[in-house]
């Protein structure tokens, strides 16, 4: 597959928490580029900085140093260059959480629709997109059900639908398959791969799950806040 544009470009990213005695260096000078269509796994032992890196790429955590460019736009260089980070997230980034984090008071379809609503979609396009996605993810028959009544796998697929709804080009997932059995985990990964190609998106997934390693284009290893090879 020909590689597309660079969607994620982080340079010399460092992040530390606390100061002095309690200082923790979660990331020390990390460089990473991910292109459209790429599916990347972020590996590493617990505490190596995977979640920290993912959150920085997702603009919900401010790096201590370095530069972040998303979809060709420089968004962090010593400080945020955009004030409306939430709009940036809405337009460019889809999050898939480990605990799926659906809003409990909305039905499956509403959980997806709310993103499109916020992004300013017309109600009709919104409804079409929601049903297209839910059907595609094989949870269309559960559209009117609230999250509490969905199975773990169904909830996860609704969460994926929400992450993809506004056609973001950067999809970030923190252990998306941890709650799923291995067959489902592989199905979800296959699905994400397919979407990455179709929507010219990139996918960065934190995972410990060796069963799905073969589904990635690239494995990126973090150790003690640095990238290592192999």
């Amino acid at each position: 597959m020909p590689l597309g544009d660079i969607l994620v470009d982080v340079q010399s990213i460092a992040k530390h928490f606390g100061e002095g005695e309690t200082r923790v260096d979660a990331l020390r000078s990390v460089d990473l580029q991910v292109r459209a269509g790429e599916v990347v796994a972020l590996l590493g032992p617990s505490g190596s900085g995977k979640t920290t890196l993912l959150n920085i790429i997702g603009c919900i955590l401010e790096p201590s140093a370095g530069k972040v460019a998303l979809d060709g736009e420089l968004v962090f260089d010593k400080g945020w260059l955009r004030t409306d980070l939430r709009r940036l997230r809405l337009d460019k980034i889809g999050f898939i959480f480990q605990s799926h984090n659906l809003l409990p008071f909305l039905t499956a379809e509403e959980n997806v629709a709310v993103v499109l609503d916020l992004a300013g979609w017309q109600p009709e396009d919104n409804a079409n997109r929601v049903h297209e996605l839910l059907d595609y993810l094989e949870v269309g028959h559960r559209a009117k059900v609230k999250p509490a009544l969905l199975s773990g796998g169904e909830a996860q697929r609704v969460a994926i639908a929400r992450a993809l709804a506004n056609r973001p080009r950067i999809i970030l997932a923190d252990e998306p398959t941890a709650a799923l059995d291995s067959v489902r985990a592989q199905l979800v990964m296959d699905l994400l791969r397919k979407l990455a190609v179709e929507q010219e998106a990139c996918i960065i997934t934190v995972t410990h799950d060796e069963k799905i390693f073969d589904r990635f284009d690239r494995l990126v290893n973090l150790r003690d806040g640095r990238l290592v090879n192999g």
Binding site: I60, R86, R87, R89, L90, L103, P104, V115, L118
Partner: peptide, 15 residues
């Protein structure tokens, strides 16, 4: 927690 989720998916303060 739900408000944090809303912020995460991009809801503005207004919402």
């Amino acid at each position: 927690k739900q408000i944090a989720t809303l912020k995460l998916i991009g809801a503005p303060d207004r919402t």
